[in-house]
Design a protein around this nucleic acid. Structure first.
Length: 457
RNA sequence: GUGGUUUUAGCUCAGUUGGUUAGAGCGUCUGAUUGUGGUUCAGAAGGUCGUGGGUUCGAGUCCCAUAUUCCACCCCA
């Protein structure tokens, strides 16, 4: 033992085999659905230049960026005066020019601009990679986590929005997670802010409204007031804050308030259309309009999507929306995109909490051959080869250990079948196949074992 | 970034107002069972009590610092 225990950075995790099998199950499911909808994979570097990253996620986001120290003599550009001043932000730009990616959307926007001549629009891509945020860790909140993004860029059609909802629906149906799909629209929020005469306060209004369930209507109004919304405006907001009924009813009520806002009415029309298309697509999960969704308000311009797991207290497991001009920042204006992002780690946590992982994900080995050494070992190795040729995941126990130990090994790895080729089997030419679940075993010719396994796996 | 919380065996946790050699369950290993796992029985190994200081005759227990976990705020997958 070394004197100090090794450790990993705060908010990061190791993944052991059983966890990886489960995680791969999630990734595989998401990937499969993405591909069924025609999305193609890309990957981008873990690091981006800070120029790409900074200023895209708001002031808060910039603080949460992991910056990478320049290689070599990174202090060469720094003067003693800079150090004395202690301006951390300025100093950081002198000693660091790269950062770890914060999400997959901004790198994708960068990618689209950089590869615009190779891309056929509309371009549907998916991307499953880790992202890093220097956030304070909590349950379901890590400093390194995987996002699974699907975006379509270069199409204004609302079919894309509805299709992303359908993708989310299918992923969670296939993973057996009950979810609620939530939809909002930046234009509706903008319209509300405009109509009450506080066009610049969209965020403040939404943040306050979001707390209705937690703190009640009176406190929400207090908070609105504290955030600089005048009494008349708050008065006009009341029917919107206390909105109820079905999605259609809600939209109708909002429509009355927003009648004089062109932007707001456009948002309502868009939302109605997305609901209509979703119905045609036959989405199974409940889909509801939720005006308090403020996620990604920095760059979303139309629909805002969020998915929450039912029956579990966890942040959202999936989020997304429409951004009309994300590539504009990188010099390619006028291209609209819409995307969705699955939080694989949170999905994992939800599934663990709800006991949703199939037991089959515990091990991938299907057959174990017991090792008796000598001539028997040779036969076992050959048998293992034949099994693999037939497509069975097969393990040969590497040592001539006690049989009991080899069986315990199979048991702990939950390997369903064990084949025994010992001295008796070698002389008779018949091998033993044991079913580890039932405990039954049979002694037959190798060919019979092969066909029996093929039938039963 | 602000306030709080957690940390004792591989895992989950006990440990009294500070007082001999820090415990349990599960897991691991060995044997009962020299060609058979999951059940049972017997036994064993495994801890400088997160780390570093301090107070004390004496610290797992009290104080300070630091790391980590989780929670609220902020924000977010």
């Amino acid at each position: 033992m070394s004197s100090n225990k090794p450790s990993i950075p705060k908010g990061t995790r190791d993944f052991s085999p059983i966890e990886m099998n489960r995680r791969n199950h999630i990734f595989f499911t998401i990937k499969k659905v993405f591909e069924q909808f025609g999305y193609q994979p890309i990957e981008t570097p873990a690091m981006e230049t800070l120029g790409t990253l900074l200023g895209k996620y708001g002031e808060e986001g910039d603080k949460l960026l992991f910056k990478v120290l320049n290689s070599g003599d990174f202090l060469s550009a720094v003067t003693p005066d800079d150090l004395r001043e202690g301006n951390a932000t300025r100093l950081s730009t002198q000693i660091s020019e790269k950062g770890l990616r914060y999400d997959l959307t901004v790198p994708f926007a960068r990618y689209v601009v950089q590869h615009r001549n190779e891309i056929t629009f509309p371009f549907r891509r998916y991307q499953i990679q880790p992202v890093w945020r220097a956030d304070r860790p909590q349950k379901g909140r890590y400093r390194e986590f995987f996002q699974c993004d699907a975006d379509v860029i270069g199409s204004d059609s609302l079919i894309n929005e509805a299709e992303l909802l359908q993708i989310a629906d299918q992923v969670f149906v296939q993973l057996s997670i009950k979810v609620v799909l939530k939809l909002n629209n930046r234009k509706i929020l903008g319209g509300i802010a405009e109509v009450i005469g506080h066009a610049d306060k969209i965020t403040d209004i939404t943040v306050a409204m979001d707390k209705l369930d937690k703190i009640g209507i009176d406190k929400v109004n207090e908070e609105l007031s504290a955030r600089g919304i005048d009494a008349l405006a708050i008065e006009r907001l009341q029917p919107i804050i206390q909105l109820g009924g079905s999605n259609a009813e809600k939209l109708e009520q909002i429509g009355k308030v927003l009648a004089e806002s062109e932007e707001g009415m456009k948002g309502i029309a868009e939302t109605l259309e997305v609901f209509r298309l979703s119905e045609i697509m036959g989405i199974q999960s409940p889909l509801e309009l939720d005006l308090t969704l403020a996620r990604g308000l920095n760059y979303y311009t139309g629909a805002i999507i969020e998915v929450k797991a039912a029956d579990v207290s966890m942040g959202s497991v999936c989020g997304g929306g429409r951004y009309d001009n994300l590539t504009g920042i990188f010099g390619l204006p006028g291209i609209s995109g819409v995307g969705i992002s699955f939080g694989a780690d949170r999905i994992y946590d939800v599934m663990l909490e709800l006991n949703l992982f199939p037991s089959a994900t515990a091990s991938s080995t299907q057959v174990l051959l017991v090792n008796f050494g000598g001539k028997e070992e040779q036969l076992s190795i050959q048998m293992a080869g034949r099994l693999r040729t037939l497509g069975l995941n097969t393990e040969m126990y590497p040592d001539n250990a006690k049989i009991k130990k080899q069986f315990s090994y199979a048991d702990s790895k939950q390997i369903p079948w064990v084949i025994i080729i010992g001295e008796n089997e070698r002389t008779t030419g018949t091998y033993i196949l044991k079913n580890m679940k039932t405990g039954e075993q049979q002694t037959t010719a190798p060919e019979m074992i092969l066909s029996h396994l093929l039938k039963n796996l």
